[in-house]
Design a protein around this nucleic acid. Structure first.
Length: 428
RNA sequence: GCCGGGAUGGCAGAGUGGAUAAUGCGCAGGCCUUGAGAGCCUGUGAACCCUCGUGGUUCGCAUGGGUUCGAAUCCCAUUCCCGGCGCCA
């Protein structure tokens, strides 16, 4: 969430920044928040004054009792004030609650380098790597390729769990694990600690990580009878790992590489591109999370991007990077790069995204740092997250870019050591 | 799941029904010193208010309720940690 103090002291700056997102409702919410917060402060002052009065009476009672005098009338006074306090405090809480509900729904402040735009059409391409493969035949979609290889079974999965679930069979499963292992190896060399996190998180973590709840409100599966949610990304449990933590400055940055299955309901995704492995209810992902000092986060954002791209380059995949525009960027990000891989229909599609969420999540999760041992916390850390490698979408790119006329698929060289030297996916 | 013990500031740790959360360590500033250290002095949780000051008020002892004129202290529930038992891949 945003800093309420910043909103109080600098409402115009916040209003102007949120305005860039082109969401009139949010601006209205901001104005309402400012109003509610002001009311809250007035009521709080009123409540504090009443409590002060109440304390004075208590002290008087203690003194009278010591002298052995009658306190009945004073107790009556106290009760009267108690009632007033109750009334005022009820309103204090109401206003605070209303204000907080809005506060958590306001998006993060955008970095000045985020391009202005309405939707993903306005995202700005900032670079392109590699070349599209040349085929002397009509290239197929990954779904066709996998079907022809006998490595996917959507029909049975439909019967067993529903649409957007799949059985993957044979060497494609090895390819999935090879991608994970390849990414982990690379990232460990870059100083990331590999983490296998809980696949469920509680409500506190979920809400702290999510940013605007309306963004993801329907995104996650809830476990029945428990306040637990299946994670849509390892980002959640990795962030929650340090809830209510104050880091020593010297312990930063903390660089984590989470490996997990991710679960997504994808309720709002009708009409969006959702063929085959592109949109699934469960998939594997290697995710990076960095906790760092505020002054370092923009450097890390570029570093994370370079790491992602290095992985795709080693895999020999043609891709481009876009700077996600103000209308398409999520609530919690101050800036976001999407990496999009070339696919057989000639389009670039998102395979990963890299966000600097600055202090937005850290404030909700109460993750701070201190300059020196013994000192109080200096401020909130910055948190960044980056898809190092989502295996499902990366596999789409591999299948579609490396497909051969005979229906087989060449396995990128860097993955072969993790697949027992296998060079091709072939019909068995 | 059962039984027992516990949770107090950056840390350690006292307080077990009556104002200000003792004390120590750490940290910050000052005095002293050529400098550092030692020593001494002052400060060191959060929020809000105003006339913005060496100003005022409230909250804060895991969380949420309750008892009481008054709760860190008593009662209930919950969470987490430690130990023991049970169950288990």
């Amino acid at each position: 969430m945003l800093d309420i103090k910043l909103i109080r002291e600098n409402p115009d700056l916040v209003r102007q920044n949120i305005g860039k997102r082109g969401d009139a409702a949010k601006l209205k919410m901001l104005d309402e928040l400012i109003h509610l917060d002001k009311e809250w402060r007035q009521l709080l002052t009123q409540a504090n004054e009443l409590r002060h009065k109440r304390r004075e009476i208590t002290v008087e009672i203690a003194e009278l009792k010591k002298m052995g005098k009658d306190v009945a009338s004073k107790i009556k006074d106290a009760k009267k004030v108690d009632n007033e306090i109750l009334t005022v405090e009820k309103r204090v809480n109401e206003y605070r609650q209303k204000a907080d509900t809005i506060l958590v729904r306001l998006p993060n402040l955008l970095h000045e380098s985020v391009p202005f735009g309405k939707d993903d059409n306005d995202n700005v391409e900032i670079r392109r790597w590699g070349k599209p493969p040349k085929f002397d035949f009509e290239p197929k979609s990954h779904l066709e390729i996998l079907e022809n290889l006998g490595m996917i079974d959507a029909e049975s999965a439909g019967k067993v769990a529903g649409s957007m679930f799949f059985y993957l069979k044979g060497p494609i499963v090895l390819l999935d694990f090879a991608l994970q292992r390849f990414a982990i190896n690379h990232l460990m060399r870059r100083g990331f600690q590999v983490v296998w996190p809980p696949l469920m998180v509680n409500r506190k973590v979920y809400e702290g990580m999510i940013g605007d709840p309306s963004d993801f409100a329907e995104a996650s599966y809830k476990v029945e009878d428990e306040e637990l949610y299946l994670i849509p990304t390892a980002e959640y449990p990795l962030g929650g790992m340090f809830i209510d933590t104050t880091f020593a400055k010297d312990d930063l940055p903390v660089k984590l590489c989470g490996v997990s299955v991710c679960f997504r309901r994808e309720v709002g995704s009708h009409g969006k591109f959702s063929k085959g492995l592109f949109r699934m209810h469960q998939f594997n992902k290697v995710e990076l999370l960095v906790f760092c000092l505020p002054e370092d986060s923009w450097n890390f954002h570029e570093e994370l991007q370079a790491i992602s791209e290095s992985l795709y380059q080693q895999l020999g995949l043609h891709y481009r990077v876009v700077n996600v525009c103000t209308g398409d960027i999520g609530a919690k990000a101050a800036k976001k790069y999407d990496t999009e891989a070339w696919m057989a229909d000639g389009k670039f599609r998102e395979v990963g995204s890299n966000s600097n969420c600055t202090d937005y999540q850290a404030r909700s999760l109460n993750i701070k740092y201190r300059e020196k041992e013994g000192q109080p916390p200096k401020g909130f850390v910055h948190i960044l997250n980056n898809t190092a490698l989502a295996t499902s979408r990366t596999m789409i790119a591999i299948l579609e870019q490396y497909q051969q006329k005979d229906g087989s698929v060449i396995i990128p060289k860097v993955l072969r050591p993790y697949m027992g030297g296998m060079e091709r996916l072939e019909k068995q």
